[in-house]
Design a binder for these strands. Sequence first.
RNA 1: GUGAGAAUAGCUCAGCUGGUAGAGCACAGGAUUGUGGUUCCUGGGGCCGCGGGUUCGAAUCCCGUUUCUCACCCCA
Length: 423
Amino acid sequence: MVLNSPRGTADLYGKELTYRNFILEKSKKLFNRFCYDPIVTPAFEHTEVFSRSIGQATDIVQKEMYTFYDKKQRSLTLRPEGTAGVVRAVVENKLYAQNLPIKLFYAGNMFRYERPQKGRMREFFQLGAEAIGSANPLMDAEMIWLISDLFSSLGFKDLVLLINSMGCTLCRKSYTQKFQEFLHHHQEKLCPECRHRLDTNPLRVFDCKRQSCRHAIEDSPKISQHLCSSCRDHFEKVRRYIKILGINCQIDHSLVRGFDYYSRTVFEVVSTALDSAQNALGGGGRYDDLVKQFGGPDLPAIGFAIGLDRTSLLMQQLGIKPSASRELKSLYLISMDQQYSEYLLELLQFFRKECICDTNFNIKNISKELKWAQKHHYDFVAIIGEEEFKNCRVSIKDMQKFKQHAFDWKNEKDTILALLRGN
RNA sequence: GUGAGAAUAGCUCAGCUGGUAGAGCACAGGAUUGUGGUUCCUGGGGCCGCGGGUUCGAAUCCCGUUUCUCACCCCA
């Protein structure tokens, strides 16, 4: 039976997993410093959790969800994104009944039924943060600060941060009308798809990559110039705050994100270097109406998510190495004969309390073993051969210094420890 | 969902207009019976993605299928 993993999924191991764990560990430390608590929510939810929050008209809900019925005929859906589930959990567990805002972070697998390509899988991994219960523009600034710090702590230097405001329900509505009118006047310049969008979801015309459409909307009214006074004030403050934080960003009037629940501040981190059409590494925004929609109190909120797959891909492409913070020394224990196994076990137990340690489970000649140990950058090699076994000794070789010394196993444990600790 | 290309050893790939399946790296053994980046010798490994067709004969040509890649779409 020959089976491969389903389309758009992948097994993760080795180098790839090293990168992902590095990203996860770095971000956990960062979230901790910013006082965000971890949350784990289910990988699947009732279908309405997503269909109602993300928006019926969006592509994700229309054709990209893994929806299935369980044995009791409940319609369930594998999560296509993280925010909806977290908001549902916050409402269900009444987590808002505490000092607000509540600040959470998560990491997990997400699922979208799409045509796979580089940086876009059907099962993919995101990590993200949500802050629920504050409308303060400082909150927006903190989110942008987080996402920007996250990437710089991973070693990225030249990423572009795009920012825009989509306004609140009120000003977006009046703006959308103006924009729609504008589009009607320039209908003939738009591609067929955009002509269709014009009626269903006019803001999505901004996402069109066709030169002709981009050109057509060049002189269109910009949303950031049609905000109501309170949204304009909010957006100005956000921009001032992130400037104070020393974070570079570009205002992108055409940045309109794909979920219906976004309002006011939206932002995205893109790479011009990522060798792929999928160049958005992360993004997020405010969703001031979503908690209420889920039956909770009227709480403003903001969040973001980053794609682990793409981030890892770009790190590898740019040659950014996960900085190996290996505090412990490593030792390779070589036994020359199976007969020494009991002695070896005793030593292995001792070494593993002190350092990273492996042993040769299959007996080979010592030359090969040393070559292997060197190639794998072991700091030390310990050898049990006939001499050592008979006299209850162990030879320890410092691989960098090319120095070797035989220790008395019974009486020189402290000396061995001192050597391993580099004293 | 639309369009294009690809699939051969663990990895990277060669294999011409059909005629016995190849290299480098990796792995294993040896030169060197207990000592380090080199070198040399030897070896194991393959339903040539899967299924069908054409043919005396298919890795090679044709069709289908699956997966991957790229672009569109969309998004992280």
